[in-house]
Nucleic acid binder design. Structure first.
Lengths: 154, 154
DNA sequence: TTAGATGCAAAGACTTTGCGCACTT
DNA sequence: AAGTGCGCAAAGTCTTTGCATCTAA
């Protein structure tokens, strides 16, 4: 079994199949994404890239991620925080975000199957399981349900 | 049967039950919300308010909406666009947003019942049906499924 | 060589905050 | 009178864009 759906090499050869070019910045972003554990903000990706290549600017990272998204290398998601997060396109799953503690949980995409079928049948709407996190309250925050001012405003 | 769940008077008396004060700006925001048809951005609310009270500033509208939210008078939602939208707390429903054409559709909350039960049972997570729109592709955009560059990036 | 890529700075969109005056109660 | 609310301007966060320069192919 393959260890990963996407290796740095696979990413780079995807780029080579287009008029786009392989650069140091792109290679480094690819490495960061492949080695990353979870969901990374642009800020986090930029910091990681700059550890290896200090002169790569945030705007370049934005541009590279945009390109990677067009090439279906990565996807981004909105997890209840202002900044979007990115991860490799292979790892598609659902997300739950707690409105109170802001934590995000990954859940298997299978939980969306019934809803997905329903929405398709009823509205002709094709659900995207990973693009936005479902919002709500996590188990821990339901227990400690005291009112806290200013703790939640997504 | 009552025509609306919330009238301007009800909103104002909610405020009077607190140390907060009733002001012209708050009354006008309340009127705009009660008379509004759908989901309004802060910008739209501000414009509507300024038609009646030209000197009300956007920052005041932000502050009023924040207060109204604490008092459970309104809720806001994120519908796949950068700016949040607000509506009266009574009208809770689900949202679908098309990633391609950016249109938003309201759907009855009942469509979330099964998923909601599942998430509660499996993860102890209590779903908030209205706070974020489900993302995906609407019927019309599934049909006209040609690739368009730069048309979608939520 | 030449079209694509980058760094830097500036601009943009949305939202929050500080401050002193005005208004509600 | 006392404390809340407001307008204005500035700051903050996240993201995009313009432009001159540099680089991959």
């Amino acid at each position: 079994m393959p260890e990963r759906e996407n290796t740095v090499q696979e990413i780079l050869s995807t780029i080579r199949g287009t008029p786009k070019r392989v650069t140091v910045a792109k290679r480094t972003v690819a490495e960061v994404l492949v080695n990353a554990s979870g969901h990374l903000t642009v800020d986090a990706i930029t910091s990681a890239v700059q550890q290896r290549q200090p002169d790569v600017s945030p705007s370049t990272v934005y541009r590279i991620l945009e390109e990677f998204e067009e090439l279906k290398i990565v996807v981004h998601a909105h997890l209840g925080q202002p900044a979007a997060v990115y991860h490799l396109a292979g790892a598609v799953h659902g997300h739950l975000t707690c409105e109170t503690c802001k934590q995000t949980f990954e859940i298997p995409a299978v939980h969306f199957d019934a809803l997905s079928k329903d929405l398709q049948k009823t509205f002709g709407f094709q659900l995207d399981r990973h693009h936005v996190a479902l919002s709500g309250t996590c188990a821990a925050c339901q227990v400690g349900r005291r009112k806290k001012r200013g703790a939640s405003h997504s």
